[in-house]
């Protein structure tokens, strides 16, 4: 539609394109040029503050820390260390394990919620969506802190249980454990699971469900053969949207993890803080990114295969 009006305006003798310089002419003639020029400020800014720092991060990962300075002769020693010292691999493995469990828990718990809003809420749908996404916009730090209040040694759960008389001593395992980290992550990232799943459920053509029923499928079969496969893109998106950021999370393991629940993000922070080994911190960041990317590729591939199988 805009193309038509565009050609109309360029053929107009009074059109600005006739009087303008080459840049304006290009803008008037080409849709791509208009798109690019509008996107340019954002793109140039983000390229500068994302790609340039990344390039330097990669370069720094090839350096070695010497006291407070760097030895800038390129070496892959840091990368070798990641695979030689057990602490690095252990923390990477634990981070992946914790976020994988948290991701599965979040997606499984949020699916029925998204399903309810998509299929069973007919009035005030917007209110439900706002209600579900509202907490996610507010401070992540404070939502995690809230769980410290709830799970603490003298926290809400322990003191409530003692008051009721169910336990005599506070339950020590609530705080500073992997479980505490998993619960908090699942709670804090719920909106990231609900929204994509909800969108994919909402898109499902209702007549497909009717057709399945007419052809003799019960509610369970209808769900497995129609709803689930069609909502799979939402489930995939939700899993990635939770798994990727939580693997590198810092706040939750720092506040609730204790020594057993520490994750790779904590070590990266320590490398840039107290340990003061920036090249190693850079190496760990890059290794983390590569591992996440590989896991996601494999995951998406498997899910696509599964989808082809069931549908």
């Amino acid at each position: 539609m805009s193309d038509q009006s565009l050609s109309a305006s360029t053929s107009d003798p009074d059109s600005p394109a006739r009087r303008a310089g080459w840049f304006e002419r290009l803008i008037y003639r080409s849709e791509a040029a208009r798109g690019f020029s509008l996107l340019a400020p954002t793109l140039i800014f983000l390229l500068t503050v994302i790609l340039v720092p990344f390039a330097i991060l990669i370069i720094m990962s090839l350096w070695t820390a010497v006291g407070f300075d760097f030895d800038t002769t390129p070496t892959i020693k840091n990368y070798q260390q990641v695979f030689e010292r057990p602490i690095y691999l252990a923390l990477l493995g634990r981070s992946i394990y914790i976020s994988a469990i948290a991701t599965v828990a979040t997606v499984v718990l949020c699916y029925p919620m998204a399903y309810y809003v998509a299929f069973h809420v007919h009035r005030n749908k917007m209110m439900w969506i706002v209600l579900m996404t509202l907490p996610f916009w507010t401070s992540y730090l404070l939502r995690v802190f809230a769980w410290k209040v709830v799970l603490g040694y003298e926290g809400v759960i322990n003191s409530a249980l003692i008051n009721v008389g169910l336990i005599d001593e506070p339950l020590g395992f609530l705080l500073y454990s992997q479980e505490a980290v998993i619960i908090t992550l699942a709670h804090a990232w719920a909106a990231f699971a609900i929204l994509p799943i909800y969108v994919s459920l909402e898109k499902i053509d209702r007549s497909l469900l009717e057709a399945a029923t007419d052809l003799g499928d019960g509610p369970a079969m209808r769900f497995i053969r129609i709803t689930l496969p069609l909502s799979l893109p939402g489930v995939i998106a939700a899993s990635l949207l939770i798994f990727i950021p939580t693997t590198g999370d810092y706040i939750t393991p720092a506040l609730l993890g204790g020594p057993d629940g520490a994750m790779i993000g904590n070590l990266i922070q320590k490398m840039f803080g107290p340990i003061n080994n920036w090249p190693m911190g850079a190496t760990l960041s890059i290794v983390l990114m590569i591992i996440i990317a590989l896991i996601c590729l494999v995951y998406v591939f498997i899910m696509l295969l599964v989808r082809r199988k069931i549908s």
Partner: peptide, 29 residues
């Protein structure tokens, strides 16, 4: 509004900070 070459990947790039762990952006910057 506009269709231009590389639109999909560019949008993906712009939305990257929503997904990539912020600690990595913080450290890189």
């Amino acid at each position: 509004r506009y269709r231009f070459p590389g639109r999909g990947p560019l949008v993906g790039f712009i939305m990257l900070p929503l997904v990539v762990p912020l600690i990595i952006f913080g450290v890189a910057l």
